[in-house]
Design a protein around this nucleic acid. Structure first.
Lengths: 137, 137
DNA sequence: TCCTTGACTAAGAATGATTCTTATGTTATA
DNA sequence: TATAACATAAGAATCATTCTTAGTCAAGGA
């Protein structure tokens, strides 16, 4: 079982700025997104600090690393169990807040113990569907 | 399974070697894995050709690109709808061959049209579970 | 207070996967 | 045969991420 460890982070201005940007953010920002945004308020901010901070946040269970994008990592401050709908036209990622109890037959498990699941739904978002209809596609 | 027949791809020796390596491969190899293996038989093989070939295979629906690994892309010749169990201890990825009809409530969809899904199950594989028991964890 | 320790920041170098460029070769077909 | 379209391959370029190193800062003990 997961036990939360008492690794108290120091709350530096840089970290606060990053946390503030991430808080409630549903855009699944990349390291670059974070950097660019926080750089505005903290011109001395460097990529190294972004990565260091993310690493610290991950360790403390405050941020989830997503592997949706093959090009760059994306981060999600929403630690609640949730899933993603990915539009195959515009690549936008949207959260799906439902708890899914997915049953896997024992013969498929082969002794594997499942503790968590994450579903990627692929398809087309409403905006792209409208666009496609207009284009007569 | 991989059948190149109906595609309009040119079947060069290099491509055949890559296809042969991928055929039935359940290891989810990376570009480097492919390169290293095929290099043995085709010393002139280059990374560029590996990537070009993968790109062509993807376009023709013969290979699926996986985003499981944040460090490098992995490829899967199995195009049947399937899912993955990822061991959080040893990072091994195992296929789960079941069709899952996952129902998403309309209010969560927001007009999104779902055509496909892919589930990542996280947990511990049987080997790692045994190891952990021995370590008294 | 001063010193020590350890955590944090930041700049730039290093790494490494992927893509691009360019030159050359090969196949298909008009 | 000529030409266009497609393939290969070497190395350069790109770009996200990690590493290195040096400097800063805070807390605690003597």
């Amino acid at each position: 079982m997961i036990s939360i460890r008492k690794t108290e982070m120091r709350l530096t201005p840089q970290r606060m700025a990053i946390l503030e940007y991430l808080h409630g953010n549903i855009e699944h920002p990349s390291a670059e997104d974070i950097y660019k945004n926080v750089k505005g308020r903290y011109p001395s901010m460097s990529f190294a600090t972004v990565y260091n901070t993310i690493e610290a946040l991950k360790k403390n269970g405050l941020v989830r690393e997503l592997t949706i994008d093959p090009v760059k990592r994306r981060y999600d401050p929403n630690m609640e169990l949730h899933h993603h709908m990915i539009c195959m036209d515009c690549n936008k990622v949207r959260d799906v807040h439902i708890k899914l109890d997915i049953n896997v037959p024992v013969e498929q498990l082969g002794g594997f113990y499942i503790s968590d699941n994450h579903v990627e739904f692929y398809g087309t978002c409403s905006e792209c569907r409208e666009k496609n209809i207009k284009k007569g596609e």
